[in-house]
Each structure stands twice: as structure tokens, then as C-alpha cells.
Design a protein around this nucleic acid. Structure first.
Lengths: 218, 218
DNA sequence: GGTTGTGAACAAATTCACAGCG
DNA sequence: CGCTGTGAATTTGTTCACAACC
């Protein structure tokens, strides 16, 4: 009953909240007023008990005998996921991956505008990727200062990933998403997530020669 | 004592094996003969107890008082991860993401040759992305037949992802890596992994307004 | 002495099952 | 009566701590 403790939400739950969020956005678009834990579970690819447990960490936003009010739950999740105010993204590395990410996030995703790519290649600096300017890595601090609370994305070669990460952190970035196949360490207070595209193929390769399983990444 | 039971390896362990593998490749390149669980742990960003537990699921390949023989462990991991024989990759969707993935895997990663991209856009079919041909989606079955045990990658719009996944499975693919922001279901016997690039930003957004944590994705 | 391999202790996550409420 | 919210039970994963061995 709405105790204001902002209690510790389990990591596994946090990773699923955006999945529910997407399902709720779809439901809302279809003008669906309420949804049961079982329907949401089907849409998210989990079971109903998990949905109820997960949502209960946010508070009691359902109605017994009825289900969850879609717009209300959407609003609460948006607020608690921090999606109410939009967060900028700065991508380091304007190679194939950096450009693809700029396009991917620039197009579809609401609330995460990519404000700049940075690179050290003179051939790339000064150009643009689907309207997003490519600037020199030296300008990173200035860019980050203009976009408080932005997310830094590492799409650089593995060899320089730690160096660029340090530069991001020194510039004031507290959220990093690393695509380089390298271990990144950062000061406490900085959240680092790691997406490893090579690793995914190796995991699939493992299961391909054993009993296959339904496995969700990330 | 090399019991041949191929015992159940925990999912969490499987997800870490490729991380150890990469560290071992680096050590081997540097001609390092042996490595302790503590050194490997540092390189992988985990603790030594976890390394020992994880490696013990593969068998007893270490030497007490000495550590693990790098080339030997590398060979065994390579074998058990199924990296001994190379596995082809077919990418569905020759948009920005599909092209970036083709480049990414085409370049660096050993053992995962991207043999084709498939698309339905006549403007793309017949072309090539860094030497990899773009072929029509109708040819998928033929391509898959020529590359037994290949991995299917979904880099299509979310709306058609399930349809393309079904096509992959009907063609004989048993390993799918889905980049589309959509829930993919497949028959038992097919392994599906999901990488969601939008989701990662939302998770970072959540932690940015709370106590930040070191969190590893994938 | 040094380091692995592993049972036992602990912690996190999932699932069950049902009371509580609309 | 239906569906949520949640303690309790179970399963999965992590860490400890030490015997076994080189």
C-alpha cells in the first residue's frame, strides 16, 4: 500500500520492466483499458506469477478481480523507469556499429535522442549520420556538459574502449553502454552495461551441440 | 576422472564461458603457459571461486598448486563450446543494423563467417556488404541447406520478425539471434536468444535515477 | 607452499498457493 | 467469483572454506 521506501528492486526484475513497458505501450495504442497478469505475461514471454511479483515491487497498481489499468500502469512505469524526462545518448566510435546504433536509436526509440557521435578519424569528423553530427573526441566534455545525465555508448575498438570510458566518466557521464569486446571498469557511482555481439554467437554455438533451450539474453 | 556424462551446465555458467574463452585467447597470444583462477577472474571481471566452479563443470583441467594450462584449457573450451568447427551466420535484414553486424562479425570474429544477408528490398538484393552477397529472402532455404547448422540472425523490423523466424526454422535453422524488439517463439529444439538495444538504454535510465550498480548485460 | 576442485552455507530468483479484496 | 499481492517453498546461482593434490 504505497509505502514510499523506493525499496531495492531485484536486478532480474529491472531487466524485465522495459519488456512489460513495451507491451503496455502496444496495449495502450490498441486502446486496451485493462490487462491481466496472464495477458501481460503472454506478451512478455514470462509467466503470470513473475509479472505480479515484478509489478508489486513498483507498488500496488492493480485491481483485484479486474487486472491492471493500462494507462495508469504505463504512467507509473514510465515515471519509475525514468522515461518521463528524455535522456540523451552520445556514441563514441562512428564506425559501422556506431552509425547503425545512431540510426537505430535515432529512428524508432522515443525518449533517447542521439545528440552526437564522436570519433578521432579526421575523415569522419565534421560529417553527419542521418542528421546527427560527428564531432571530434576532444569535444566530448563540452557535448556531455550540454546534455546533463546523458548515456555514453562505447562503439570503439576494444583497444581504446577503457580509455574512452575514462574520458566519458571524466566528462561527467554516469551511465555507460559498452559494445566493445573488452572488460570496462569505472568508478563507483557509474553504471556500466555490456552488450557483446561475439559472445552471443558463441553461446548459441554451445547450445547447438547440446540440448537446445529457450534462452533470453540481456 | 573424465566422466562422460556431459552433465547439465548451469545457464549462468554457459553465459560466462565465452568470456573466459576470450581471456584465454589473449593469454595464448601473449604466449602465457599457465593461468591461475585468480588471474582469469581478474581478466573476466568475476571472482576466483566463480571461475573454478564454472571450469569444474567442463571437467578437471587444472593442476593444483600450478593453475590451468592455457593451450590445453583453450582447446577443451573450444571443443565444448562447439567452436572447433566453424558455424556460418545468415543475417535477415540488410538495413543499417544487418550491415553493421555483417561487418562486425565478418571482420574480427574467428569461426563465424557471415555467408549471406537476405532481404526483400529489390534495391538491396544482388548487392554486397563488404563482400557478403545480399540475396532475396526467397532463397533462404537454399542458403541454409548449403550451410548446415548455421545461425539465423533477425535484423528485420519487429513486425516481420516472427514471420522471418518461422521461415528460418522451416529452412532447418535451430539457432536464432533476434535483434528485433519483439517476442519470438519457436518450436522446441530451437534455441532463441534476444538482444534488445532499446531495452539497454531503458535499464540504464532506471539505474541513473537510483543507486547506480555495476551490471553486466547478456 | 600454492592452487584446484567441491561440499556446504548462503543469497537471489522463481514458482507455488492462497488469503484478501474488488 | 476473479485476479491481485505476497508469504512460503523451491530452485538456481554464488561464495566460502578447506581437503586434496602437485
Amino acid at each position: 500500500m504505497a509505502h514510499l521506501d523506493a525499496g531495492r528492486i531485484p536486478e532480474a526484475t529491472v531487466a524485465r520492466l522495459p519488456v512489460y513497458f513495451r507491451a503496455l505501450v502496444d496495449l495502450d495504442r490498441a486502446r486496451t483499458a485493462t490487462v491481466s497478469s496472464e495477458e501481460l505475461a503472454d506478451m512478455a514471454g514470462v509467466n503470470a506469477a513473475k509479472v505480479r511479483k515484478d509489478l508489486s515491487y513498483l507498488g500496488s497498481y492493480g485491481t483485484r478481480g479486474v487486472g491492471y489499468d493500462v494507462p495508469y500502469l504505463l504512467f507509473e512505469m514510465s515515471r519509475q523507469l525514468g522515461l518521463a524526462e528524455s535522456r540523451s545518448v552520445v556514441i563514441a566510435g562512428a564506425g559501422n556499429l556506431g552509425q547503425a546504433l545512431a540510426n537505430y536509436w535515432g529512428e524508432g526509440e522515443r525518449g533517447f535522442p542521439v545528440v552526437a557521435l564522436v570519433d578521432v578519424d579526421p575523415a569522419k569528423v565534421g560529417g553527419a549520420v542521418s542528421g546527427i553530427p560527428v564531432r571530434h573526441a576532444q569535444e566530448m566534455a563540452a557535448i556531455v556538459k550540454d546534455h546533463q545525465g546523458c548515456i555514453g555508448v562505447l562503439a570503439t575498438p576494444a583497444e581504446v574502449a577503457q580509455e574512452v570510458a575514462d574520458q566519458f566518466v571524466a566528462s561527467g557521464v554516469r551511465s555507460l553502454l559498452n559494445f566493445a569486446p573488452a572488460l570496462i571498469t569505472a568508478a563507483p557511482g557509474v553504471t556500466v552495461r555490456h552488450v557483446d555481439l561475439g559472445l552471443e554467437l558463441q553461446i548459441l554455438s554451445f547450445y547447438a551441440q547440446r540440448e537446445p533451450r529457450r534462452v533470453a539474453a540481456s
